[in-house]
Every structure is written in C-alpha cells, then in structure tokens.
Amino acid sequence: MEADRYHRALAELLMQLADDDLVVATRAGEWLGLAPHLEEDVAFSSIAQDEMGHAATYFGLLAAVQGGDRDDLAHLRPAMARRNSVMLERPNGPGTYREAPHFDWAYALARHFLYDMLERVRLDRVVQSAHRPLADAAAKIRREERYHTQHHAMWLRDIARSGPQYAGRLQLALDRAAADAADLASAGPMAVEMEALGLLPDASHLADDWRAHVVLALDPLGWSLPPLGGALNGRHGEHTQDLTRMLRDLGEVYRSSPGASW
C-alpha cells in the first residue's frame, strides 16, 4: 500500500515535470524562424531544445518507473492524462504556426519568465528528491536553466528601460499569462504525499516561493504580478482545446504507423 502510494506520487511528479517541459518546448519551438531578430531566433531555439531535452529525460524516468516507452508516453496519452499547467499550453498568439500566425513576443517572454521562476524553485526541491535518478537528472537540468533565467531577465530589463509604451506591452502580456496560471505553482492532488515521502521536499511552500521570486524580479522593474486565474487545473488533467490541438500535431506521424520505427 505504501509502495503503491509512493509509486503514484512519483509518477504524478514526473508527469508534471515531463508534460510542462514538452508543452513549453513545443510552444517555444513554434517561434523557430519567426523570432523578432535573427540572433534571438538562435538563442530562443536553444532554450526550446533544452526544454525538449529535459522533457525527454523526464519521460525516460517515467517510463523506467511505470514501464512502457518514453515516446508512447509523450505522444499517445490523451489530454485528460496530461499534467502540464494550462498557461503553458496556450498558443503564442492568434493563428496557427503553419498558416499566418500572429505571435506575440511579449506574451512568449512573460510566460517563459513565469515558468522559469517555477522551474527554479521546483528544481531546487527536486535535486533533493528521495528518488535518486530524478535528483541526479535535476542537478544537471538546473545548471542549464540558469541560462534561461539570465536570458529572460535581460529581456525584461531592456524592455523596462525602453519606455512606458514597451513596459505597458509587457504588463499586458503578464496579465494574459497570469490569467491561466492558477495551477502553475501547484504540485497537484498528491502534493501532500510528495512532500511526506520526500519526493518533492517542501512542496507546501512551492507556490509562496514562486510568488516571492516573481515579485522580487518584477518589482524593481515597475511591474506587478497580476492576480492568478484559470478555471481549469492542468495538474488534475483539466485542459483547453489548445492542448487537444497541440497533441494532435505532436502525435500525428507517430500514431500513423503504430509500432513502426522512425
């Protein structure tokens, strides 16, 4: 019974980590070739690749824990089995990435910044996880994440210094991102177990820590963290049609020939 509880809590945690990174990497990857500046295209793509690589690591750990194949776990699970935060599944803007997208760079930055802050406080805990393979992987991942934080901090600073018309644009983007972020810093329905079993130490203070980090970064630049909203809770498997559409794309080829090697 205790082993079962441990196993379920660990799988929940790994799904949150893997699904968050897969979805954020996919949205970041949609910017390929379309970022506002060539140099930024290259930099943002590196971030997308890091996140996708982290997703692959977490799906590998999940596959090791519950059996199966990491690509099956990434490509075949339906939306209601996904545990990512709703904020991360939202599109980059109106239109689709293939036909006439109108992507919003301010929104991409705001969202990624909020997510970076979560990764920071969450990874600080995961490196101490009782599940040793996860703790070891997280230590490596945390080193890469430091660059993402620096990258987004630089953008925030530059935008803040550029004048009110630009700063206002970013505040609007923060408002939009926060409107879906109620579930972001939540460890989900098994948070208590994760903490008690040492899988995610101090899970109960995750949201407070996240908020403190966000406010600490935004406040000196003149921005505030808007009220968090969102009727759906991704940690419970509740998602928007945006995720359903994304999953259709993610698995389109993989599903077309089950069992084939690609």
């Binding site: 990857g29 949609e30 990491r70 990434a74 990435y97 794309d249 080829v253």
Partner: peptide, 13 residues
C-alpha cells in the same frame, strides 16, 4: 519548422 511539432519522436523533434 512546419515539421518540428509533428516529428515522430522526441529525438527527431
């Protein structure tokens, strides 16, 4: 880039 999301495996993506 149109094929990045649809690339069949995590590795191919």
């Amino acid at each position: 880039k149109e094929w990045v999301p649809r690339a069949p495996t995590l590795y191919r993506k």
